[in-house]
Design a protein around this nucleic acid. Structure first.
Lengths: 120, 120
DNA sequence: GCTTGACTTCGAGCGCGCTCTAACGGGGAG
DNA sequence: CTCCCCGTTAGAGCGCGCTCGAAGTCAAGC
């Protein structure tokens, strides 16, 4: 059984840089990564899964501050489940609005493309 | 016939701030806005339409630098129609990829929401 | 005539999310 | 033992897209 990855391995698997991984830990986005005997970070599968989820939140435009809040709720345990759900639901609505805006804007862009094709 | 809007009117109609309108002009995103006798900017309907389009490009994540390039092509006239179309087509692909990514990420978020609902 | 307020220009400053540098240390290869 | 690489920390710096501040001009209202 694989025990865990070093920071470079975690960077490779998560798509984040080692710098960013340390930064995320510093600001509390990822909690107290385990260290080996020499003080080097060792990322567990759970850490990697959490990073993957964080990445999805970032990609969908959640601000770092909100992600920190969410991470904090996670650490506070099961009593925060409802609060976490509410956060994610609010986020979902924002993302849906954003997607619908993108689709609208895209229509305008496509109309321009069509116009240009007719001009050529 | 309405001759045009002042900077505050243009700000209200475009959703951009007066500061941003001046900034856009400074960097060449919007070309030489007409001035009245006192030197104040007067935005034409054409300017406002252009601003509206710019806003859609921004909202879909086009970098300012690319928008400047596009604006420059506009100023160079009909010979750049093909180049403009290619830019917009490339942009469209990026936006489509982004939307599809958002939809994927959203699925994960929704799965979490469902999970939380089951936990409650 | 004086104040008020909207406009002008120029350039500095800010918030976000990283990204990088400096200075240091330990562990393995030759 | 020496070299080199990968890691560590604390803190500074950067790129983007605005956003704001200072200082000045002009027109209208009292």
């Amino acid at each position: 059984m694989e025990t865990g990855l070093g920071i470079q391995g975690a960077a490779a698997r998560s798509g984040l840089s080692a710098h960013t991984l340390r930064y995320y830990e510093r600001i509390g986005l990822i909690h107290e990564v385990h260290r080996d005997v020499t003080g080097h970070r060792v990322y567990s599968e759970a850490d990697l899964g959490w990073l993957e989820f964080l990445t999805k939140l970032r990609q969908t435009g959640m601000p770092i501050a909100d992600m920190c809040r969410y991470a904090e709720l996670m650490r506070e345990g099961p009593s925060t489940v409802r609060a976490r759900r509410l956060m994610l639901e609010a986020h979902r609505e924002r993302v849906l609005a954003c997607i619908s805006q993108l689709n609208d804007d895209l229509k305008t862009v496509e109309a321009k493309i069509t116009m240009y094709l007719e001009m050529e």
